[in-house]
Design a protein around this nucleic acid. Structure first.
Lengths: 189, 189, 189, 189
DNA sequence: TATGAATGAGTTTTCATTCAT
DNA sequence: CATGAATGAAAACTCATTCAT
């Protein structure tokens, strides 16, 4: 039996996510990572062959979460579904910012990273399809303002995710407020 | 007298902005910068004493632009002012993303960088004040939905800047569309 | 565990001292240092964060040696003490030259260097006090020429350290000779 | 006619000497030098082909001064001559410290520097011979303590030059005091 | 397996020197 | 001649990755 385990893969990916959000892809350094874990820097290489694999694995895991939650949503009523989907996205708000750096991952040195990236791209498409389907239904059901092109409506909806929650409202409440604003607008009611 | 300039300060800052947006603060490297200019890497040091000074100067210049445009707006009618202000912000859309890294600038080695950063912070406050004043007026004039807290309305408004313009509409048109969505909502009119 | 050390901290400081004496503060380069050790240049940074820390640590260690030896001297008879103190100083003759560059150390980037420098300055004061006390006693006991100001006597005494030992006499003998010359003069006996 | 002269060769060498004493050979930088003169850095190259030529020329000039003064001394009475020679050396006290770095001059790139260095070495020998001759005469005339080897007496004499003049006495007075101490010693008269 | 230590490739920065006006 | 600007070579320092225990 060797020494006791230094840190789990999951702990590693948790810290990775946190540091990636704080410092960005290029500012994410392994010294920082190991400094925020219990073991030695070199132990990281027991789990992943290089930095890009870690980043890719981290992003994949985040994406899996979003995918799972998003696909669990009941899509019977498309407007309710959109409200719930927004909540999901807000719960995993980081994923938007995080995945923005996905293209920086260097897949040249690692098949694993390449595979993870492939998964992420597929998932992206899946999510986008889900979203577009719901929006088309919403439009067909006459729930959307016809004078605004659908892509713009979708873009604004999706961009809501990054609105800073300055009042620190709990996510469900925050989600409702944003959805209300998106649907009804900021103007006089 | 002397040899003629390899590149101007302005060209340098233009490239800096571009690279900063593409690679982020930590991914911004002088090798990249000089590679995108005509001269040698060491020539950069004729203009700025170190990397942080370059970044700070770049951000300051961007901020000056925004400040100038924003303060030129006619504030007689606050709703029109808000529409025009949004256009300004969209024209300078990068500034939001760019200045997000301002806090990473290391001012320990450079008074110039520290001064620039100070300017940026002051400008931030100025812009915020302008925005809040307009919103308070808009609210007092009964133009805003009273069931949504003002900070949320402001937050969503400001966050519109980062909405990706997927249809590549010209900025004035794009601005009008976003403003319309923000004010009137995506829902049935 | 881990690979075995390329060189010890002590070896590093030994070489540092040697190179510092040969090339001076500004001529002391890490390339030179690593070239005189067994490992790679970057390995040096495992021990010290930057060049100034190395120089400061080196000077501190030298000063500690002198301080230890100087404070171990029996001060019952002040003239004998002065003779022995001279021997100590001659044994550590380099320290005079070495510490002459102490003020060049840049402490802005390193707390460790600043602390070491502080230690050195304190030690300087301690040594100076010891010396002055012995000289005052020597004067009071009527052992010194009253027509020469005490500071001059001290200055000449201390400056003896740097007299080049051209005949390569062993230190104790060399010390006795210098002391004799200092006390009795070069003139006809 | 071109522009008016930026600085003279003599001014250049004066500053060089000053900076060389303050920063040492390796710390002597041309940016520093031009910063302490009225013209541009590149103007230096109108006078000297490279850094080492400047340093060599500076040292040569200092040496010439010492040589001229030393050879002007009346050597009728050797003890008086030694006293006067000490005064000369004290007047030009820097030369000792300055020339200590002469061996660091890189003569590979410059014949001029090589020639200057050659001159310096010859002058060194000349001065040494003068000194030794005087000392031998002093010994033969029975003016020196026979129990101390001549090289030691000479070494101590010469080393007096570097004694710090803490009381800031005028050089003639300072010289007398040092000579007195050297000849008669610090001990009870 | 876990890790402390080593390291080379790459980055920032400095500086003597050259160039062109 | 004087100079402002350019520049390559070299120095300090960083960091992902490897090695050996």
């Amino acid at each position: 039996m060797g020494r006791k385990q230094a840190f789990t893969k999951s702990e590693l990916l948790d810290k990775t996510k946190q540091l990636l959000l704080k410092h960005g892809y290029e500012g994410f350094q392994l010294k920082l990572l190991s400094g925020n874990l219990v073991g030695a820097r070199s132990t990281i290489y027991q789990y992943y062959a290089n930095k890009d694999e870690i980043v890719a694995a981290c992003m994949k895991r985040v994406m899996e979460n979003v995918l799972r939650k998003a696909s669990a949503i009941d899509q019977t009523d498309c407007m309710i579904a959109l409200q719930n989907l927004l909540t999901v996205y807000l719960e995993e708000a980081d994923f938007h910012q995080l995945l923005g750096d996905a293209h920086k991952i260097n897949t040249a040195n690692s098949v694993a990273a390449a595979n993870d990236l492939e998964f992420i791209e597929q998932a992206h498409i899946t999510l986008k399809n889900q979203l577009e389907l719901l929006f088309v239904r919403a439009q067909e059901e006459g729930n959307l303002n016809t004078s605004i092109p659908l892509p713009v409506i979708i873009g604004v909806y999706f961009n809501l995710i990054d609105t800073p929650n300055m009042m620190n409202l709990p996510t469900p409440e925050w989600s409702k407020l944003l959805y209300q604003m998106w649907l009804g607008g900021a103007g006089r009611d």
